[in-house]
Design a protein around this nucleic acid. Structure first.
Lengths: 344, 344
DNA sequence: GGTCGCGATGACAGCGCTGTCCCCGATGCC
DNA sequence: GGCATCGGGGACAGCGCTGTCATCGCGACC
């Protein structure tokens, strides 16, 4: 049992190795009895097919690559872990395996990465995490080699198409809209907003949701809107700008949790109590969101499920299902914690 | 250039494929000129060897598995991301690749995992993250199959040996000792302690460091020491117990950051200002540690470097270097932030 | 001068699977 | 009855490498 091969299974089941292969791959041509015999033999022998052999002779490698951006030391990127968890689960269910690679955004050695993915690993697909999933250079290299790409929270082109692959996301517009309305329902009218990274599609969508909820298309007091980059540090000045105004907003909605935490931090330093004098909200539901003081009201994304869907897409696609190129939108949910309350 | 094989390289360099193989693997027998010719050919062809083929015919798979515990939704486990980053870097440098797997601790399907690792993937080594790295069942399954294991922050046996593989860690005793002394240097004498998970070796070592620093082996007021499990939630009651005492400690040192954040949270709810009325310290320097209010004084572990060392160990070992079985201890550093200050 | 030793290289046989092609017997249909 | 069809299953050739062993010069050594 140290290392059973397909030959062993074939011998025990008294069939040819090709038949074993067929049964194990769920190919049609095999009678139920033969199938049962083979399965039984495989089970008693504790047989597990060799990935390398399968990859070498077949057209699938049973490998999916998860490519994360390197050099991103921000807290926010930690949702990679959850994404990965979901992807691993889906891989396991499909007999696949997840290999993680990463690229330094600075040293854009994309062609080496691509070569590795295509020639060395021969992966069946790639899951791209922002901001990698919006890098046209990488995307086109991958597309040239005919690799299935799944983009997490991707930027789509003008008409909403995703010509680079398939994507998973939440409805960022709705998420922001609902959060803003939540704040308004509590009685807030003076709601500040901290923007996300200008190149990230989600940032614009979230801002649009905020604007539409609060102003319903009407004119906007721009003093309420401050720039940010999705990182904690980038939101510090924005929070200060908002909180030092003579007419201070009663609530601040940051385009993500990292920045909302920055608001919390600035308010703390300025001696502004949250939520009694200031409500704070974010989006993402980072692990840290429930742990800061006070716990952050935010929007949860089903990140694990999104990771799983990404992997499943690749698996199904490689197995023959030729899904169309589009995007799957997942449900989000408002998580109301203690950082928001009606204004005094 | 869509997919150059070793045959192409051999043809261009005008040598046999075996020679190409030798050069690319850095084997000794090849003249400098031949070597140069082959390298040149490989470069112009953009050749990358096929992992599957190498694994199938050779004895190495160039794959390292990182096995994380599933079902661990705690914040603290996020340092997996950093560990992984380091491991990936080391893998890349050595031509290896990292595949991530995970196990549910509940459904201990360790034999299936092992079978996958050994037969399907044929990995050259496995990196185990706590608490997996202390699971004797998994450890012995892996050992039976002769797999190289590297354990992160492992529990060693009585005489300090690691019979299950190699390990990387920091000096937990010293880390806790130094942190306690830091608090004492600030004038604290009444320092509470929240223990870590009783089955985790690091927990005991940290407690010992604390005890020795504070009491120097003398008798200990047990009211100062409260149980915890390394998780945020587990530390909530401990923090309350500590802070509700009539003679409240002026500082609380939690055995890790997640629990220190719980202390912060309880203090916040009780209206105890940190650090003016209470100093709080932890260990780990989680990404969130610098972002909570106030930023947490803690001990940083070189996690990325530890992950890299783990991967390197496996790579070197597979390449023939037969290092002994022991543990590599990394330097930690005190990170003093705003959660600690002299008592009022 | 013969031959041993050694560095440099090639021939060749797989590794454990999958893809392709082929065979065999049982039906179905005219 | 003759022939196309179809389900079930085997033979065989690789996939792209590495291990093993053989080969070939060419100085060294007796």
């Amino acid at each position: 049992m140290s290392k059973a091969t397909i030959y062993d299974v074939a011998r025990v089941a008294n069939v040819s190795i090709k038949t074993v292969s067929r049964v194990l791959n769920g190919e049609p041509k095999a009678s139920p009895e033969t199938r049962a015999r083979v399965m039984e033999a495989a089970r008693t022998l504790n047989y597990t097919p060799s990935l390398s052999a399968r990859a070498l002779s077949g057209s699938r490698s049973f490998l999916i690559a998860l490519v994360s951006p390197g050099g991103v030391s921000d807290n926010a990127m930690l949702y990679i872990t959850e994404l990965q968890l979901g992807a691993i689960q889906a891989c396991r269910a499909g007999g696949y395996h997840l290999v993680t690679e990463y690229v330094d955004l600075g040293a854009s050695d994309f062609s080496a990465l691509t070569e590795t993915l295509v020639s060395t690993l021969r992966v069946d697909g790639v899951i791209l995490i922002p901001p990698l999933c919006d890098n046209p250079q990488l995307l086109s290299l991958l597309a040239d080699r005919g690799i299935n790409c799944v983009r997490i929270s991707p930027t789509l082109d003008a008409n909403g198409d995703d010509k680079w692959g398939w994507g998973v996301d939440i409805d960022n517009y709705q998420a922001a809209f609902q959060m803003t309305r939540h704040l308004m329902d509590q009685g807030h009218r003076d709601i500040g907003f901290i923007q996300g990274h200008p190149l990230h599609a989600a940032a614009a969508q979230r801002e649009a949701g905020y604007r539409d909820a609060l102003f319903d298309g009407g004119p906007i007091p721009e003093r309420l809107i401050q720039p940010g980059m999705f990182t904690f540090d980038s939101a510090l000045p924005a929070a200060r700008a908002l909180l030092c105004q003579k007419q201070r907003p009663t609530a601040i909605f940051a385009a993500n949790d990292s920045m909302a935490m920055a608001v919390l931090s600035v308010a703390y330093k300025m001696g502004i109590p949250v939520p009694s004098a200031l409500s704070v909200a974010g989006i993402d539901d980072l692990p840290a969101a429930s742990v800061v003081c006070p716990p952050l009201t935010t929007v949860r994304q089903p990140v694990v499920e999104m990771g799983a869907a990404a992997a499943r897409f690749i698996i199904n696609r490689t197995a023959g299902q030729v899904g169309n190129y589009l995007k799957q939108v997942f449900d989000h949910s408002l998580v109301v914690r203690e950082s928001t309350a009606p204004p005094a």
